[in-house]
Design a protein around this nucleic acid. Structure first.
Lengths: 333, 333
DNA sequence: GCTAATAATGTAAGCGCTTTCACAAATGTT
DNA sequence: AACATTTGTGAAAGCGCTTACATTATTAGC
């Protein structure tokens, strides 16, 4: 592989000049530029990005940490990030945190030692304090989590609004007895979604009934289990809104196993609008989570603040929206 | 951030010695080693991996190119690769090829300029010749595609066997009239799956009937369209095997829209065992595609051949397996 | 026509490591 | 006791770039 030195030799100029035509960092005469370009071409020269990084103290790479590489949104988010970044010649290094404190910290250390210019984090185990501290050391953007003191670095979804919209949709279909299966309550977004649910109820003059509430685990099995318990309580309800699509699937399957027809006997609402929701039977009504857009925005944040792409605008808060499909119907009778 | 120089100063030894204790590349006296380790600790030293890469001519990174970052197997494959590689301190840089020749080549160029120690490719647009050529220039492992002349570098699934197993399962349930919805025939794996289907038919003494065959596009809509046409032909069949799960979903939905009950009136088989197949109604019977394992194996290939982890064994051919769920039933009457 | 800017290019000092080579000290061999 | 090994360490030359800073060529100003 040719080096910058060989190019300079062939073009009959100095190293510095070659570097200058590569980076456009200073004026170069038209004739020289052409000579250099020609030499590059002939040698099929490709700059060694490692050397560039070392010399410029900029690795042109950003680290992305997600809970699970094969998790439901990851693909979408990742895709947004990759697209946005590669279009400007930066690359993304990925790592998984497995929702475990030690593992997340470990991955972050790894990314830092890799000299990433910035970190895009989708984490849920480490504390806010840790993130705040990290933020002082290295540029960080946090996805789907609002950390007090670094709001500018967070790209979030308005989860409260999502929860609100989900329940509101059911209310508008005439449902009055609405069960709610939440995610693990230690997560902030889970509590926000629940708060939205409660607000919708309240606005409709309904009171939140703990008897129609279950804490789930965001997995299908958790949805099944929650539904099972809900049914076992013998309370009547015509709709159930779930804090994510997986649990909604579980709930649907469980309901069906209990001879309830969906949506005739029971309406179901999910959350996230993961790919799968388009394939279930019946197709799941859900709340769209613009994961791809948010990933793209995180990347844009990095472009703007780290790579000085000043005119870029970044949007910190995203709005969820309702996706009505077949799993929810007006209350019958 | 501390440099190796500061560590050496503090420990009262030379740069070289510090480097040696870091890499274990040569013997260092016990006392010195302790001194150095202590100095590192005190300075919270973290080697600059960029500098290491430049000096050692090894970037400790491997590039991974996939069709779509948010594609169906990508998450699984990626996850396998990331796991295997990060456990040994290497990182993975990702890029998407979008099944387009120019885009794939572009991404490969990008990865190469990034000095990846090896490339893991999941591509379908570039030609075998191109891959062969690339293989001469830089270490490459190809996923899910057998390239003649570099078989050792390919990690494949026995697609023919998969196709065979899918149809065989239907035959064993007593089905005699089995429709087949394939993927785009320009893809090798698609043709292999079809060949397996035909072999199963043949072994059962049945002849392949073009009237029960449709070429699809691997997407849900394609499954719907194919099913529609199949139905429109007015031919009778009691089972349909699809070349992937998405199309199987489409086919199921379409069949249902045409008042066919699944699996009572029609049995359906998918291929790939993507996450989604566990959530459909009824749960989809399918052929398991061990994407995660294959990704892991690709990473292991790299560890073995590039990072000299000699005792590692790599398996080039993977066997698919049947996953029977609810969408296939013995033929009724 | 002479000085002061300005533009274009070259020189060389790093960036933070690895690694070869040389050398001194410790150990083993007869 | 003389020599050959082995072991531990340091000096220094890169790796392929970027980027002050220095230098020369060009143009402008008067």
């Amino acid at each position: 592989m040719a080096t910058i030195y060989q190019v300079s030799e062939r073009a009959g100029v100095s190293l510095a000049t070659v570097s200058r035509v590569m980076n456009g960092s200073a004026k170069v005469g038209e004739a020289t530029r052409t000579k250099v370009l020609k030499a590059m071409q002939e040698l099929n020269y490709r700059p060694n990005s490692i050397a560039q990084s070392l010399a410029s103290n900029c690795s042109n790479s950003v680290g992305m940490l997600v809970s699970e590489v094969h998790g439901p949104f990851f693909g979408e988010m990742m895709s947004g990030v990759e697209n946005e970044l590669r279009s400007v010649g930066k690359h993304v290094i990925i790592a998984a945190g497995h929702s475990d404190v030690a593992s997340e910290k470990d991955a972050i250390e790894f990314l830092i030692s890799r000299k990433c210019d910035a970190l895009i984090l989708h984490v849920d185990a480490v504390t806010d304090e840790y993130l705040l501290e990290l933020h002082k050391q290295t540029p960080v953007v946090v996805l789907n989590r609002l950390v007090k003191g670094m709001e500018e670095n967070c790209i979030c979804l308005n989860n409260e609004l999502g929860g609100y919209l989900a329940t509101k949709a059911m209310l508008e279909l005439g449902h009055k007895q609405i069960a709610y299966i939440s995610g693990p309550l230690f997560k902030l977004d889970v509590r926000d979604r629940l708060a939205g649910h409660q607000r919708a109820l309240q606005e409709a003059g309904l009171v939140f009934d703990p008897g129609l509430f279950m804490e789930g685990d965001f997995h299908e099995a958790g949805g099944v289990a929650a539904m099972e318990k809900l049914l076992a309580r013998g309370r009547s309800f015509s709709a159930v809104v779930c804090a994510n699509d997986e649990m909604a699937c579980g709930a649907m399957n469980c309901a069906r196993d209990n001879r309830l027809e969906i949506p005739k006997d029971l309406s179901i609402m999910g959350f996230d609008n993961v790919i799968m929701s388009r394939y279930t039977f019946p197709h799941l009504s859900t709340i769209d989570f613009p994961a791809g857009e948010m990933g793209r925005m995180a990347a844009r944040w990095v472009r703007k603040h780290i790579y000085q792409d000043d005119k870029l605008k970044v949007q910190n808060l995203f709005e969820p929206s309702l996706v009505l499909r077949d799993s929810a119907l007006p209350v019958s009778a």
